[in-house]
Nucleic acid binder design. Structure first.
Lengths: 159, 159
DNA sequence: TTGTTTTACTTGAAGCTTCAACTAAGACAA
DNA sequence: TTGTCTTAGTTGAAGCTTCAAGTAAAACAA
């Protein structure tokens, strides 16, 4: 067994910053969305991913991939969103194992009304702190990390 | 009411990457720590922050700041860590409102035994994906975002 | 075709986090 | 000193996430 390599100064700074962002950023966005529409950041993302999909529907697995969530977590959340009238579950015509989640009109209205405030919050909490070059760097470095965590993650598909 | 400014390509890439990292990285580290010692990343960080503090103790408020957590969350977790014999609660001599969390010997042994595996995981999941320059850039940009989220966050203190 | 494995998803229980309410002590003000 | 405000922390309940187990259909194998 060899000695582990401890983190150097920059590695430690990068790691601690990421860890802090990780806790603070979702919490702040949750607060904004909770106030605006009584939903969480994760709820919002589920609706957002459906709203951007062709036909406003996606199989549960694909929706789970696009929200980086487990199927179990997604299933519970879709049940909740269904009770609120924002999403419906439908059978897949070609494969009976598949459940398709479909954004309703009410769900679409909800996300359309929430999007401006949410985007403003993302800018205020994160993007406004950075120069254009910082944003490009973060995009590039962030995608490297995502590739390391999941080498066929959906956000890397169009590259 | 003005039109919101939507995200441009790089902004969207940066935001989606951060959101994905945010879900995937803690999940992967949780899995490693759960397997190695049946604790979460947050539990680990609480122990780590105490182990690095002078005297291996900190007031609850300070520990909450260093783990970016609410006092409520920390209080529940310290109760759990206390039941496992890793932390003790003590009264503060000068101010009776303050509770001091103190890492026990058993707690120190735990973190010492877990640290190498955890650091290896942080490297494997994140740092190994980046060049030295990337790491320095991420540290710089990450700290800008942290400053935006909380302008006197503890990781910015030594600057 | 029959049995086996894999894929897609759901469910209930256990554990974790948040929220609101609460206690208690220190600081401040008159 | 007395009352008020602020700070520090705890608690229980509600809601969210994970985990393990289960169902059912599709794919594969002999």
């Amino acid at each position: 067994m060899t000695e582990p390599r401890w983190l150097n100064a920059d590695e430690r700074r990068a790691w601690l910053a990421l860890l802090s962002i990780n806790t603070l950023l979702p919490a702040a966005l949750d607060t904004q969305l909770q106030a605006a529409g009584k939903l969480s950041l994760f709820d919002y993302n589920v609706l957002a991913m459906l709203s951007e999909a062709e036909g406003r529907f996606l199989p549960m697995s694909e929706l789970a991939a696009r929200t980086s969530a487990s199927l179990s977590r997604l299933s519970h959340v879709v049940t909740k969103l269904q009770r609120r009238g924002w999403v419906e579950r439908e059978a897949h015509p070609g494969d009976a194992r598949v459940t398709v989640a479909h954004l309703t009109e009410a769900g679409m209205d909800t996300i359309v009304s929430l999007a401006p405030g949410h985007v403003d919050a993302v800018r205020a909490l994160m993007l406004d702190a950075m120069t254009d070059e910082d944003v490009a760097d973060l995009a590039r470095i962030g995608e490297k990390i995502v590739a390391r965590l999941d080498d066929d993650h959906w956000i890397l598909r169009e590259r």
